[in-house]
Design a protein around this nucleic acid. Structure first.
Lengths: 348, 348
DNA sequence: CTGTTAGCGCATTCAA
DNA sequence: TTGAATGCGCTAACAG
């Protein structure tokens, strides 16, 4: 058997033009379905292009038009359910508007995030949708985008005090609701799994937790609050810390699902049955979170909706670049969802 | 407060050249760290470029070089753990070789997959790594890549009988091992959750299941095999079917984790305790799968490793495009992993 | 409706 | 070592 290496064809509009004995701009117009070409020549061009195996070179086209019809999305990790569902929402909204989406992950590293922004700008994307890494503390690395006039919209994880639009969860309210939900079930000793403290979203969720305790006359105890770097091992650590607490806890409010799931898994591995009367409420869209025992209630962040909204705002800004505009800040309230109908603490 | 819309700068190498009273080609050389420029002018150029806020236009650069240093990856859905870990492996290997990665999802639709391939080719990526959608039955839509000489490598979900390199799981062996593992524990009535029947990987996993039964003298019963379109509702259907079976099952081999997790969730919601003496083995890297009860054993597909390997092969082909090469086919054996130390059927 | 001309921003060849 | 000239492939302005 022989393996023939076929030489790549490099058919351009000029080749088509020559074959048809017409001008390349006519070919270009035909291929772009311009109204200023006869149906007849249009048909001839399309036929010939197909025959010759012509494939448009978008590098050249985009360079000429200085428009790529592409937006970039940067998230910490695509494997996290919230982010992949947000991306689904972004792609849906972008597709409707005839845009392509380039998905990138910073892997929670600031240096990678900065690098990605520069690459996206260098590739002249029309806009960027961004949820920052846990190492990112300010928006200075967006300078390269600002310089080029590339619109940027934050979602979920954002930088404070910047002139960029944002689409956010109501983290404070979510934390408050989750905690009060537990309190209303009779919980008094509520553990809080927080996240990386640099990120505003975890700060705000924690503030909601504190406020709910305060309102209900329960003292805040810092020893019941555990941080996390969103790795599985942090969840395991949290589980161990719970076991060592000198008091009996009756509720957990987890601001991130990684900690909650990993903690539950660890306890299970240890053969420790989590008492049925401990309630867990978590910020989570992860479907598998519903499997963890004894979790039941999640704060649905509706990644899809947030992604769509962020995309809409980005397009507004792209299309009004020359006009003065005030950065928007949209806050979406997460809703408490009962995701499991198992008999729960709340039922007894 | 006023919002100033800063005009985008469009500094090019010519602007830098003019400011420095030198030629733009010298600027180009300096920016590309060419050895044919004085250290001194190089320094001057870099300084001025920085001052003026110059940002390279990769569209122009890539067009000129007809090389993008970018590879495209198409997967059905980034939210599936196997694929996101494969992507992590791909990005790692690509980054080492100085390549960028464009991540795309076909959403399991053939039309989108075809469209993505054309867009990637139109953007002149240097190569494509692909795991096909469940609707894809052949490789004809790769014609646009072949025509342009764009290398393509399959991983995991592939098309049979094509001249493209592939990196695959040993699906037959995995299915065989999983089933035999169950048989050795004493299971006789083993249910099999399969996947979309168009995909070779599920066909091969099922063949492994059948072979293991045959070898151990257990008759194959088609009523114990359930297909799935990898949606949660299919898993729920599977659970319902299990409940209606006229015989008591004692083992499940799941070729996809979506079915397994959704089925377990459904049973739990119904308040049905899955007998402790049912063993479950699944093709899955999904960490949360370890939480499902009574699942414990998974066939680790090592997405990361597969992704890395696919990338290595792609680079080989990119770098040897002019040379004859035979498509490679690499098969990686998945290993049975005990992912939970809970007391299991196998222990009693 | 079609052709001519020019140029997007860059890298590279050839001269000097 | 630097400059001048060319063209990657395409689209858009202008002319006819």
């Amino acid at each position: 058997m022989k393996f023939i290496v076929s030489q790549p064809n490099n058919i351009t509009i000029h080749d088509i033009a020559e074959a048809l004995q017409i001008n390349s701009s006519t070919v270009s117009r035909a291929l772009n379905n311009s109204s200023r070409v006869t149906q007849k020549t249009k048909a001839r061009v399309l036929k010939k292009a197909d025959e010759m195996g012509y494939q448009r070179n978008l590098l050249a086209s985009n360079l000429r038009k200085s428009k790529t019809n592409t937006i970039g999305v940067i998230v910490p990790r695509i494997s996290r359910h919230f982010f992949s569902s947000a991306i689904a929402g972004i792609e849906e909204a972008a597709y409707e508007s005839g845009y392509r989406v380039i998905i990138c992950q910073s892997m929670e590293q600031f240096s990678r995030e900065k690098d990605l922004i520069e690459t996206l700008v260098a590739n002249r994307v029309d806009g960027i949708i961004l949820s920052i890494s846990m190492e990112t503390t300010n928006a200075k690395h967006l300078e390269s985008a600002r310089v080029k006039g590339t619109s940027v919209v934050f979602f979920d994880r954002h930088c404070d005090g910047t002139n960029y639009s944002k689409v956010l969860n109501d983290d404070f309210q979510g934390g408050f609701d989750a905690t009060e939900h537990l309190i209303k079930q009779g919980c008094q000793n509520i553990v809080h799994f927080s996240g990386p403290q640099q990120l505003k979203i975890y700060e705000n969720r924690k503030k909601g937790y504190q406020q709910a305790l305060k309102k209900n006359g329960i003292p805040y105890r810092s020893e019941l609050v555990f941080n996390s770097k969103l790795m599985e091992k942090d969840g395991v650590e949290n589980a161990k810390k719970i076991l060592q607490l000198p008091l009996k806890i009756d509720g957990i409010f987890s601001a991130n699902d990684i900690s909650a799931i990993a903690a539950m898994q660890h306890l299970k591995k240890q053969g420790i049955q989590i008492p049925k009367d401990i309630s867990v409420v978590g910020f989570s869209n992860e479907p598998s979170a519903a499997v963890i025992e004894p979790a039941l209630t999640t704060l649905d962040q509706s990644g899809r909706k947030i992604g769509q909204k962020a995309t809409e705002i980005l397009f507004e800004e792209i299309n009004n670049k020359s006009v003065l505009h005030k950065p928007k800040s949209i806050v979406i309230k997460p809703s408490l969802l009962q995701r499991s109908s198992t008999q729960r603490a709340s039922d007894h």
